[in-house]
Design a protein around this nucleic acid. Sequence first.
DNA 1: TTATCAGGTATCTTTTTTCATACCTAAACA
DNA 2: TGTTTAGGTATGAAAAAAGATACCTGATAA
Lengths: 114, 114
Amino acid sequence: MEVKTKQHGIKVVADVLDIIGGKWRGPILSYICDKPRRFNELKSILGRITSATLTKELRYLEELRMIERVEIRTETSSTYEYRMSQHGKSIKTLIQHVVEWGLQHRKVVLEEGV
Amino acid sequence: MEVKTKQHGIKVVADVLDIIGGKWRGPILSYICDKPRRFNELKSILGRITSATLTKELRYLEELRMIERVEIRTETSSTYEYRMSQHGKSIKTLIQHVVEWGLQHRKVVLEEGV
DNA sequence: TTATCAGGTATCTTTTTTCATACCTAAACA
DNA sequence: TGTTTAGGTATGAAAAAAGATACCTGATAA
């Protein structure tokens, strides 16, 4: 089992990082994990992302079935929100591990690094 | 504490993904985590990476103090190996979480996705 | 003494990402 | 009726990442 993990480990790491890596996907997932978000809400929290890029990243995460785009209707209006899919929710703990490692170790990298 | 984590969470996620993200850094770290590796060993395990790219990525991880480049001397010869720094070792569990999530969930993404 | 191997560097090209800017549609608002 | 807001799309330029190729240095091997 240990051996099997190692044989396939690298491909697995690369595949997972393709989902949460990149400049925006990790941050996007970490916001949506927290609670469902609307397009402009994400856009303003993320800061410097453009609409085109945000759209592209959201469509990609949808394609991977990590998130879902749902129409929210009230009597008077309707809008869309992005939320984790049932399957996507499983990544929340992984993201928490990322945040934890970051909080404990990032400083070392930032201060000693460069 | 929960609030504090959330306020800084995104920046933290982005910073950590800058270390383990990208096309090669995750795989490289996951190999070196396992045991120290030599340049050409890494190059051949990683497959399609070029020397220039591998050098660049290794220098960057060194700069972040995640790995160390050490000269290995025997009586007859000397070579170099890359190994995790004391600080870098802490990322091993995080990488294990990445692999675990991947093994459990990647298939869903690959099969249902696209 | 020539050839080979480890561990790279230097340049240039190609590909991929991201950004900037302008624009679009439907709904609600004033 | 005209404007603003939400949620985008389209296009092209710029920047970043990765690749291809050639070359270099200091061993050691034949």
